[in-house]
Design a protein around this nucleic acid. Structure first.
Lengths: 130, 130
DNA sequence: CTATCTGCAAACGTTTTGCATCTGT
DNA sequence: ACAGATGCAAAACGTTTGCAGATAG
């Protein structure tokens, strides 16, 4: 129980199952992936609970919502700074831990207060290549 | 008529109206923006035609589909290499013509054949700031 | 005890689809 | 002539919402 306390949100069995599914998960799962996985334990699990929990985690900075997959949101529990590469055929997402020093010069920031950036790569993964 | 020939797709009045709306358009319009604009001329215009035309243009490399706005696809007729910054309050998108020399070192490309990349900035625009 | 969460179903907004009709070439 | 485009409505999709009942703290 102690390990979940850091999330600072009310702990329910359903939420704990979601935390456990996400922990160390490198698959960048969609809401449906999470739903299906947790439904095995809790047959009444609903999407409302999945989305509610993901939103609670996101607010507290414990999960990142990825918009790289054009069909659905994907979620990443790894909060360390990194980028992603997605396979345009099978939609598998891999992490890219490369320090790409992008920053937007003032002259081109068009008066925006920049609060974030996202760098994504697209390609075909090894499996789909053959 | 000649100026549209380069698209290499069948020219219909509806499509020409869409081309004209897109030409030089810096607003990164959504499908609905295009639909509404063209409907003024063609009251029977349908979303099917808008999406069909956009897809035809995209296939031929004459429009870019932007995924930067999380609620809807946006379209950009400017095919020159550039990035975007979106306002998280009003969703206005500006172009960023800055040569950000990002490239993915082989060691971190995870066996992917990289075919594209996307760099996006998020922030609050001047208008929304006040 | 009560603020918050769960589960269900219905609603939502965008995009896609099926199909009968029409139109460029 | 005919491949392919149009227009309409319905369907599909991921996500959000309303609400009654349940539960963590």
């Amino acid at each position: 129980m102690e390990k979940y306390r850091r999330f600072n949100i009310k702990l329910t069995p359903q939420r704990i199952a979601i935390f456990d599914y996400l922990e160390g998960n490198k698959n960048h799962p969609s809401a449906e992936d999470i739903y299906k996985a947790v439904k095995k334990q809790f047959s009444t699990m609903s999407f409302a609970t999945v989305y509610n929990t993901l939103e609670a985690l996101r607010e507290k900075g414990n999960v990142r919502e990825l918009k790289i997959d054009e069909h659905k949101k994907r979620y990443d529990p790894d909060m360390s700074p990194h980028h992603h590469v997605i396979c345009t055929k099978c939609n598998v997402i891999h992490d890219v831990f490369s320090d790409i020093g992008v920053h937007l010069p003032d002259e081109v920031s068009k008066g925006f207060d920049i609060s974030g950036k996202s760098i994504e790569f697209f390609g075909v993964c090894r499996k789909c290549k053959y």
